[in-house]
Design a protein around this nucleic acid. Structure first.
Ligand SMILES: NC(=O)c1ccc[n+]([C@@H]2O[C@H](COP(=O)([O-])OP(=O)(O)OC[C@H]3O[C@@H](n4cnc5c(N)ncnc54)[C@H](O)[C@@H]3O)[C@@H](O)[C@H]2O)c1
Ligand SMILES: NC(=O)c1ccc[n+]([C@@H]2O[C@H](COP(=O)([O-])OP(=O)(O)OC[C@H]3O[C@@H](n4cnc5c(N)ncnc54)[C@H](O)[C@@H]3O)[C@@H](O)[C@H]2O)c1
Lengths: 224, 224
DNA sequence: AGGAGTTTGTGAACGGGAGAACAAAACGAG
DNA sequence: CTCGTTTTGTTCTCCCGTTCACAAACTCCT
């Protein structure tokens, strides 16, 4: 295989990748990791698309936003493409993360191994409940919520996870923002209001289930 | 206020609501429940949109797919609209749900109160690990995975939640489909392959974090 | 009853993403 | 070196979703 040449786009860091593409890059990355584990060193857009569960034309278009990392007539080098996507997403180094609210969900998240293996490192577990103090979860001591600013600045934390009850979520978000955090993953079923510069993504179990219920209901109606 | 008249659309159950709208209806529903709890009986599209974190024009267009449930010059009746959305989504009665994989995450899900209050009822907790049998989680006994067909048919279960490790997810999905389940919520980081008629939605923590990381990285680059 | 003020429902313009289709590029065989 | 085969990168078209903007509908006040 020919030496990979760095094409024009790869140094130009200001180009913007469509949001829909950004959301799929992690899926491609995961599929590439799986292929690498199977000792597969090259793959076509067709194969990778199948592994990622998308259309191959869409995959190629998505990858073309990053640059020209394939070889016509051959396909993509698994390791090389994997590195390029990881670099583009920004997970070549680990991001420090804090989790707030170590209840049912917070426990599960703290124990989640996928964090570590996918570019993230949990550096703080915080809870307002004084009884939680001194408890150790997943090898990390639970700290009082007031320690947030200290932990955040010490570790240069940019990403925070909210796993507290809905009523407390906005307060926690405000505190996270005050502590300099600029990206929030919110598990509480609330609309958070944050400054413009802060990104919020939500994961909402009830919403997902209700969407399924809607389609389920339609199926039922249609088969009558 | 004038009596609500049932408009042309409300009986026509075959019209299709855009997917993007379906995904927002649960958000509106939640906002309406919150308003009702504050004893607010009427609200404008502007107010409801603010509570739901969307543009008011978008809200109105979304609601217009359900029918004409507002009153010009006045706004929407909170209870009435709430019922109409719940009916449209299909959460006026509870949907039975099974959870497969009672590990870290499965425990948290089983204990999640939001299930019950939002139109869903957990009727089965399943795990392949024999040591889990006889354990009671959230007032429900954990059953062996082989009991799935029995539990599913007994309760008329249509929705299943997968919370097992990625390697087992496809097998579990196959079993769920074989047991007659037609909607799956998948927490495992895998692309599931299922028959056409089965709906799958995925919740993927790592992907969400990686999307945040991408934007975080861009912020860092831009402020250099 | 009529006019002023308010708010919904929707037509129309616009922007972004999905997918088909193909030209350009690489490779191997002869 | 040339031709045929393979597969990428990209163009073009279509569709879905967002947003604007406004007429229609309703309330309230005089
Ligand atoms: N359990 C689930 O499977 C699940 C699923 C989806 C969403 N959620 C949502 O995630 C959130 C947490 O759920 P849970 O089941 O873990 O609840 P939980 O009650 O078990 O845990 C909440 C934790 O947050 C802590 N807390 C409360 N207020 C706080 C504050 N101001 N600052 C810091 N910590 C605070 C509490 O001490 C507690 O430990 C809820 O909003 C819930 O709706 C949970
Ligand atoms: N823990 C989290 O916060 C978290 C977050 C996001 C995603 N996930 C994903 O959710 C899944 C579960 O995570 P976890 O932390 O709860 O893992 P876990 O290992 O704690 O639990 C998995 C459970 O599934 C059971 N199981 C395994 N194979 C099975 C099978 N074939 N049939 C039935 N049950 C089976 C195991 O006995 C175990 O109890 C994983 O795919 C993980 O990647 C977890």
């Amino acid at each position: 295989m020919k030496e990979h040449t760095v094409t024009a786009r790869s140094n130009d860091s200001a180009r913007d990748i469509p949001e829909a593409t950004v959301a799929r890059l992690p899926v491609y990355l995961r599929a590439l990791v799986a292929l690498a584990e199977q000792q597969i060193s090259t793959c076509s857009s067709e194969e990778l698309a199948a592994a990622a569960g998308v259309n191959s034309a869409k995959l190629r278009k998505d990858l073309s936003y990053l640059g020209s990392y394939g070889t016509r007539g051959v396909g993509y080098d698994v390791d090389y493409l994997r590195y390029q996507i990881a670099r583009e997403i920004g997970v070549t180094q680990d991001w420090p993360v804090v989790i707030v609210g170590i209840g049912n969900l917070g426990h599960a998240l703290a124990n989640f191994s996928g964090f570590r293996s996918r570019g993230f490192r949990v550096v703080g577990l915080l809870d307002a409940d004084p009884d939680m103090k001194d408890q150790t979860v997943a090898g990390l001591q639970v700290r009082p919520f007031d320690d947030l600013p200290e932990i955040a600045t010490e570790n240069g934390v940019a990403i925070g996870v909210i796993a507290v009850p809905a009523v407390a979520a906005q307060d926690v978000a405000d505190a996270l923002v005050a502590a300099g955090i600029t990206s929030i993953l919110n598990f509480a079923p609330t609309v958070l209001s944050v400054p413009e510069r802060v990104d919020v993504r939500k994961v909402d179990l009830s919403i997902e289930l209700q969407i399924l219920a809607y389609h389920e209901q339609r199926k039922a109606v249609q088969t009558l």
